[in-house]
Design a protein around this nucleic acid. Sequence first.
DNA 1: CGGAAGCTGCGAACCGGTTCGACGTTCCCG
DNA 2: CGGGAACGTCGAACCGGTTCGCAGCTTCCG
Lengths: 340, 340
Amino acid sequence: MATIGDVAQAAGVSRSTASYALSGKRAISADVRRRVEDAVRQLGYTPNAGARALATSQTMVIGLLAQFLEDEFAPAMLQYMLGVSNTARELGYDILLVSDADGTRALRRITDSRMVDGVVLLNVAERDERLPILRSAAQPGALVGLPADCTGVDVFDLDFEEAGRLMVDHLHRLGHREMALVSQPEHVIERGGAYVWRLQNAALEAARARGITLHTVSASSHQPDVGQDLSALLDTYPDVTGLLINNEAAAAALPTVLHQRGLTAPSDLSVVGRYSDEFARTFSLPYSSIESAPDRLGRMAVRQLVRRIEGDVAADEPHVVRFVTPELVDRGSTGVPRPA
Amino acid sequence: MATIGDVAQAAGVSRSTASYALSGKRAISADVRRRVEDAVRQLGYTPNAGARALATSQTMVIGLLAQFLEDEFAPAMLQYMLGVSNTARELGYDILLVSDADGTRALRRITDSRMVDGVVLLNVAERDERLPILRSAAQPGALVGLPADCTGVDVFDLDFEEAGRLMVDHLHRLGHREMALVSQPEHVIERGGAYVWRLQNAALEAARARGITLHTVSASSHQPDVGQDLSALLDTYPDVTGLLINNEAAAAALPTVLHQRGLTAPSDLSVVGRYSDEFARTFSLPYSSIESAPDRLGRMAVRQLVRRIEGDVAADEPHVVRFVTPELVDRGSTGVPRPA
DNA sequence: CGGAAGCTGCGAACCGGTTCGACGTTCCCG
DNA sequence: CGGGAACGTCGAACCGGTTCGCAGCTTCCG
């Protein structure tokens, strides 16, 4: 493999001159520059990433911490990963994918060893164990998901409160007076999935303000349990005319459940979910939904992270906490409630 | 950040001694070793990955090339990625995730710059453009998927021929005499998804040998087209009693289609798919299927790749082409055919 | 015509590890 | 008691880049 020394030799200049000719950080005569570039082409020279990282303390790699937890719905996570990965490449960065179950140790490893210039954390919990480590790291970090303490990191998330209100308002406006919200499993909430109760509390609040009934249940994130949970819900609350789904697995399982019971949306039941359009297409979900915008969130996180890495933002510039405003994508699964 | 020089100083030894004490590559007195280890702990020393890579020409990183193509079913790909990622970590390697649309340039970039010690290619096509580049790279490569030319790389794939035969045999044994095989979109086949016709040809051959009828159709990999394709299939071949599905999107869409037509498996129609158990659970697919074993394939690929990286296998040891024997997971969606 | 300024290019140092050869001790054995 | 081997440690070189300071050569101006 050719080194910059080989290039310099072929071009008849010193190593430093070759380096400057390629980086453009100093004035170089047109003649020399051409000779260096020719040598590069001829030798097929590519800089050694390790050597460059050592010299510049920049790896041009971003760490992506994605936890695939037992009760997590994996395909939903993939959307975020791709948003992050694609944006990173556009900005010249590669992605070090960390899917370790033990995110804390992995995070420490990649930051301490300086394998990465910055880190994106997905699936951030209310009190995420990875956060203290990230704060003590030398590299900046961006989160997708809202933790209790946002100091020292840039945070991006969907506005789940607004999402909850939007769901309730939408059905209320159509005339629904009794609905049910399907949340994630208890376990996800206990682990710190704050977005679950952020949406739920706002939805309950909106329901109360409008004087309508909102039942809340949490459903499993696995088959076949989630199907049974949904069935049980419909048995328990037979008067419910509107279903709000904040659980990807439940959304994916719902078509079958409705089918089995001979129900159709929206004539028998109005349904609103919370997932991305991409997700809806992949799972052929015919329900209107709050767009969760994973690609956009991933993109925002990387953009801001790279700004910090490259020092485009003053070190003391306050960290941002930015919420994406939810939008309802109408897929025709909501309508006026069935007559009582 | 502490360097090995700091550690050496704190322990009162030279840099080289500190290095040997930590690597164990030379005998070191117990006293010195203890002092070095104490210093490491006290200073929180972690070796700099770039420096180590430069010195050892080993990065302990494996490149993972995953193409998310337009007409590819993303969740299926995720399974392979996780199999690769988890196995790599177990063996001490990190994963550089490359999801560039232009896999060839990306592959050249990460190999030439020596960011990775080896590469795993997913979703390998019949004549994969990335292969020539991989062969000319200094690092070894492992593939998941069977290309036309396997020289210079280790190859792992499901035995799709056997899978095709297994599907046909299974239904034949139950008494089915007319079936249909749903394949990937034409486009995927043209692009070189050889596994599609590997399965199809073997299935046709088996059908011919047993004197039964097998219709073949290719279906879209997107909603809502795939649903229509499936419907059209059932209209065109009303006497079909068995359905073989070699298309993840079609499998995911089938429950809804059957429901809409008021059909139930296996009483109206026997169905056999080809996807992983994990996939079946995620999408709540109730159909028996040929296990595609993505985690196992990813694991095998990484294992072999690491063996080559670490020189456990002689450089001239022939490359392997290994097929996983397909197994049918019974989910009760097949039975005797309905009366004509 | 002399000196300052502006271009270009070079040499050396540095980033933070690993590894080879050499050196001084200690120990064992003849 | 002397010599060689084994052991433990050190210094220096090296991996392949980047960057700083400096020097030679022009050019320009007074």
